[in-house]
Amino acid sequence: MNKFSLLITALICFMTVSLSAQSIVGKWKFEFPTDQGTMVMAADIKADGTYALDFGNDGSVETTGKYTQDGNTMTIQDDGGDCTGKGVYQVSVDGDTMTMVRVSDECANRGGPEGKMVTTRL
């Protein structure tokens, strides 16, 4: 293999690792304030465009939903529960931290009181 081919192969491998490290897919832990204290929630975001939410992070799925992602914009919609409206969020992943900032959401309580959720990868 010549040096140019080796360089291209190394670059492709580096880009693949970098892109996968920035993926929203995976298990995430959310913590946000409520009137009763801090709410802990786990989210399992899957590559097939679905997610499952575990309120209390106790191993029990309370809500499922679907999402789409276009660049750094993520649209989410729960399948059931208190509100099934769409929510649009700007999403960024930096290592093991994902930040979601509300752009708009038809569900008033989703996104926490500030409209910003900072999560950590489980």
Rank of each mutant, 00 (worst) to 15 (best):
M1D: 11
N2H: 08
N2K: 13
K3M: 04
F4A: 14
L7T: 15
L7W: 14
T9G: 10
A10W: 04
A10C: 08
I12F: 13
I12M: 09
C13R: 04
C13I: 15
F14H: 02
M15V: 15
M15G: 10
T16S: 15
A21W: 11
Q22E: 13
Q22N: 14
S23A: 08
I24Y: 01
G26A: 07
K27Y: 01
K27I: 02
K29V: 15
F30W: 06
M39N: 07
M41R: 08
A43I: 06
D44G: 01
D44L: 04
D44T: 15
D44V: 04
K46G: 03
K46M: 03
A47Y: 05
Y51Q: 02
A52I: 05
D54V: 00
D54E: 09
F55Y: 13
D58M: 13
G59T: 10
S60D: 14
S60Q: 14
Y67Q: 03
T68D: 01
D70W: 04
M74G: 00
T75V: 15
I76C: 02
Q77L: 02
D79N: 14
D79A: 10
G80R: 09
G81W: 09
C83P: 00
G85M: 06
V88H: 08
V88G: 03
Y89V: 07
S92C: 05
S92N: 11
D94F: 03
G95A: 05
D96W: 09
T97K: 11
M100F: 02
V101W: 06
V103E: 15
S104P: 03
D105I: 06
E106H: 01
R110E: 10
R110F: 12
G112D: 07
P113F: 02
E114H: 07
T119G: 05
T119C: 14
T120A: 11
T120E: 09
R121D: 02
